[in-house]
Structures are given as C-alpha cells and as structure tokens.
Amino acid sequence: MHYRILDLTVFIALAALGAMIIYQSYELPAGFGGDMGSGYFPRILGWMLIGFCVLGAVSSLFSKAVHEFSIPMAWQVAGTVVLMALFIWSWSTFGYFYLQLAVFLFVLLTFYRASVGINAKSLGLNALFAVIVSVAFYVVFNHFMYVNV
C-alpha cells in the first residue's frame, strides 16, 4: 500500500477519535467549587489531537519522500496474532492454563521453525522446549505465588 495513503487514513481515524472525545466530554458533569469539571481536560486533548492530525496530514501531503508501505512476511505476523487469539479464547473458555500453554507454545514454535524443516527431531525439540517453559512457569507461579490459573 502507498505509505502516504495509509498515513492519511490514520490521521483521519485519529481526528475522528478526537471528535468523539470532544462529543463525549460534554456529557460529563461540570465541576463545582473551583473545579473545571470532568470533561475539561479530555476536551482540550480532543482539540489538540485534531489540530496535530491536520498538521501531520498537511506535512504528509507536501513531503517529497514517496515509498511503499509493506510488512515483510505479513503471513507470519498474522499467524502469530491468530494463534495468540485462539489460545486466549480457549484458555478463558476451558481453563487448564499450563496444559494449553504447552500445546500453544509447541504449535507456535513449529510454525516459526517450519522453514527449517519439520521432522521427528525438530518436533521433539519443540515439544521439549514447550514443556520446559510451561513446567517452569507452573512451578514458580503455582507453588510460590499461589496464582491460580
């Protein structure tokens, strides 16, 4: 994607956020006894946000540097996010944190190391790493901190 287009899109989105902040700040109660009220400070921030977005957009429009915006290996980034989301969902639904953590780490590792080649040895190593990390966390947190997960 074109860097400038993305840049401007973000400025517009942030300016919209600023407008929303200003709008919502009017619903907050006014202050009394010398206080300026709950909405005062956020409202200033909303206006400043819009101001700097306009400034940034203008300078982006006039800047000469033109380059593409790309994320190398985007599939790997997306894969990580999806795997994490799946894990968090599954953990919050079914529990058994440490068990699921080991599985999650194993999958994540295999995903990352797939380019090196998947064979019995690498899978075994991945599993070993996943189990060691999970057990280490289990020992520290369950037995010393009483964090119940």
């Binding site: 953590l101 994540l108 990352y112 790493f129 990390v133 999970s134 966390f137 964090v147």
Partner: peptide
C-alpha cells in the same frame, strides 16, 4: 525467544 516472551507476557499480565 518470541514464544518465551509471549508466555511470560501472558503470565505477567494475568497474575
């Protein structure tokens, strides 16, 4: 490194 960081982050935020 990355999976270890993720595990530590999850643990830290949850605890």
């Amino acid at each position: 490194l990355a999976p270890a960081i993720v595990a530590s982050s999850l643990m830290g935020v949850y605890s």
